[in-house]
Amino acid sequence: MKASAPKPKWSDVSAISSTTKSYWAQWDSLLIQDGVLCRKWANGRGDSCHLQMVVPKAKVPDVLQLYHSGCSGGHLGVKRTLLKIRERFYWVHCRDDVEDWCRKCTSCAAVKGPQIRSRSALKLYNIGAPWERIAIDVAGPFPESESGNKYFMVVIDYFTKWPEVFAIPNQEASTIADKLVHEVFCRFGVPLEIHSDQGRNFESQIFQETCRVMGTQKTRTTSYHPQSDGMVERFNQTLERYLAKVVEKRQRDWDRHIQPFLLSYRSAVHESTSVTPAFANFGRELRLPADLITGIPPDAPRSITDYANDLRNKMNDIYEHVRQSGQQTSEKMKTRYDRKMNNKGFDEGSLVWLHNPARSKGKSSKLQAKWDGP
């Protein structure tokens, strides 16, 4: 622009780079101010116009570093970074360079992780009889109740979906083991398996020794993967929503509403079994307070022998129905889950980003994946 005041002819720039041709096409919008090449830029509404500094290609990384990675940028996304830069600077292919810089920013990638995560096929684990496998979890802390309780402990049978909930003052391993033995094992028998998350109370020596003495096997969820204990997690959400609706303003009576809720839950049809937890567990429905008001007639009396035989046959039919319904529900869940399966795993030596907020306080660490076997 210093060399020639009028706009150069096309024949003068036809053999030059496409970047130069782009600036040649905007000749009327370019000017030199204080020895710096600038570009006049009007906003989308056309009611204001200001100058943008034209950035040489060698200085583009410096601008991107300042307005994305630096304190002036805050590691914001492509759109906000691009608008911030366009208010001040211009160069050809500005958008492409901003997108590429944000995509390759290691700090952003470490926090956000990959957009497409590895997802393999869903593994099914169905149970064939009541109280063979149970799930256990502790929720809280909640406001201390008048009875001194701050947590509730949940135990659910995988087959019948029968829940047991106990309000407890603390979540120590001794408290949980005592409730489990005296309130669950002594009433329903010792299960073959107990499934829980990796809480310190469930991984403690006291709890492990309790399982060993009782002869039950202990399994655990994968770290940071609560889906592997989804049944009890979903029940916790349902119970907490109910308590939020019925507790008093001071929230000191929440533990008194647990058992009435269990009566309602145990007498409601469960989606996965198509029967109520009470019917799957006892072979009969629970008599509800509303039944006494509406006058539901009791069953006709029968002899003890006929009742025992009918109950045995009835329970066998119930168990078969629950097994079939559970299998059908599991297959539907697997079909929905496997739709997003990509079978994209890791090879030995691949770089993976591990994010542990509890240990690294929001910082990510890059580790090299190594393991034996496939």
Rank of each mutant, 00 (worst) to 15 (best):
F188Y: 14
F188D: 04
G189Y: 09
G189I: 06
V190I: 14
L192H: 13
E193M: 13
E193H: 15
S196G: 00
D197K: 00
G199Y: 00
F202M: 00
Q205A: 15
E209D: 15
E209A: 14
T210Y: 03
C211G: 11
C211E: 07
R212Y: 13
V213S: 03
V213L: 14
G215C: 10
T216Y: 09
T219R: 11
T221C: 04
S223M: 05
Y224Q: 07
Y224L: 05
S228M: 05
D229Q: 09
G230M: 10
G230W: 09
M231T: 11
V232L: 03
E233H: 05
E233A: 05
R234P: 08
R234I: 10
F235Q: 04
N236W: 05
Q237I: 11
T238C: 10
T238D: 12
E240A: 14
R241T: 14
L243S: 11
L243P: 09
A244R: 15
K245T: 15
V247E: 14
V247Q: 14
E248Q: 14
E248G: 15
E248D: 15
R250N: 15
Q251I: 09
D253P: 13
W254N: 07
W254D: 07
D255A: 02
I258M: 02
P260S: 08
F261V: 06
F261M: 09
L262P: 04
L262M: 03
L263M: 10
S264K: 12
Y265M: 03
A268M: 10
V269I: 15
V269H: 02
H270N: 13
H270Y: 05
S272A: 15
S272P: 04
T276F: 07
T276M: 06
P277A: 00
P277T: 02
A278N: 08
F282Y: 15
G283W: 01
G283Y: 04
E285I: 08
P289A: 04
A290V: 11
I296C: 01
D299H: 13
P301Y: 06
P301D: 07
R302C: 07
R302N: 06
T305S: 11
Y307G: 07
Y307M: 08
A308P: 02
D310S: 06
D310Q: 07
R312Q: 12
N313P: 05
N313I: 07
M315D: 05
N316S: 13
N316F: 10
N316P: 03
I318S: 04
I318P: 04
I318M: 14
Y319L: 11
E320N: 13
H321S: 12
V322P: 08
R323C: 09
Q324Y: 06
Q324G: 03
S330V: 01
E331D: 03
